[in-house]
Structure formats: structure tokens, C-alpha cells
Amino acid sequence: MRKAILVWIAVVGIANLFVGIHGCGSSGNRDTKFQQYYAQGQQLYEQHCSNCHQKDGRGLGLVYPPLAQSDYMDKDLDHVLCLMKYGLSGEIVVNGKAFNKEMKGVFSLTDLEVAEIATYIYNNWERDQGIIDISDVTKAHQKCDN
């Protein structure tokens, strides 16, 4: 019994330590929102995108283009925000290599969901673009050409 209590105290202690570290490391609301977007974005990414683009964002051969290290993605954020929802067809060049397979958009995605996925893919794989807000998505979606 005594042993059990000691173990319990140790577990609670360690847990507190973790909460403490994370709590102190983040600086208020902005980061909480970022964390939420990022975490939600990761889930949505794994639901809608990673089948083809892979969990590690490396794509597959010349069939599915990579997202991790992709000059195509770095070039035009607004265009990427559009294609997630409205899809893309025809040839595109990513890192000097031609890809040509239609990607159907996920039309059911809300602006918030697009923002969350974008926050995930633009802050992962050595990218550090910060939060992509709903307002960025709404603005971009007004000018989509696909």
C-alpha cells in the first residue's frame, strides 16, 4: 500500500513537472491557438492528404509530389490554400520535376480546416511560417482560379 502511494506521488510529480515546463514555455493565447491549429491540422492532414503525400510529406516517386521540401509550396501560399479545397489538374513542376496527376480537392473543407492543415504543413518539415489564419484562407479563396 505504502509503495503504491509512493508510486502515485512520483507519477503526479513527474506529470506536474511536464505541465510546468510546457506551461511556462508557451507565451499565452497566440501559442495556444497555434498549437490547436497545428494539432487539428495534423489530424486533418492524416485524414485527407497523407494517403498520397505520405505522413512524412515525401510523396511517392513522380506520382504524388512531396510537400516536405517543395519549392512549389514555398512559392505561392494562396494557390496552395485554393488547391486543397478546389483541386488541381494538369502538369506542375515541383523541385524541377514534372508531376501530372489530377488531385481532386476536398470540397467539404471549411476555411478553418484549410487554415489548420496549412498551419500544419507550413510549420512542419523544417518550415516555420507561423499560424495561417482563417482570414488568410477566406481572402485567398476569393481569388481562386482552379
Binding site: 494517403n51 505520405q54 511517392l60 506520382v63 489530377e102
Partner: peptide
């Protein structure tokens, strides 16, 4: 080839 559900994962694994 146009399947977006499990085939891309299968092809990754077959590779």
C-alpha cells in the same frame, strides 16, 4: 490509379 483511399498506401508499401 485514380483511387485516393487505400491504393496510394498500398503502392507505397508495394514499392
Amino acid at each position: 490509379t485514380s483511387c485516393r483511399t487505400i491504393c496510394p498506401i498500398m503502392k507505397t508499401q508495394m514499392v
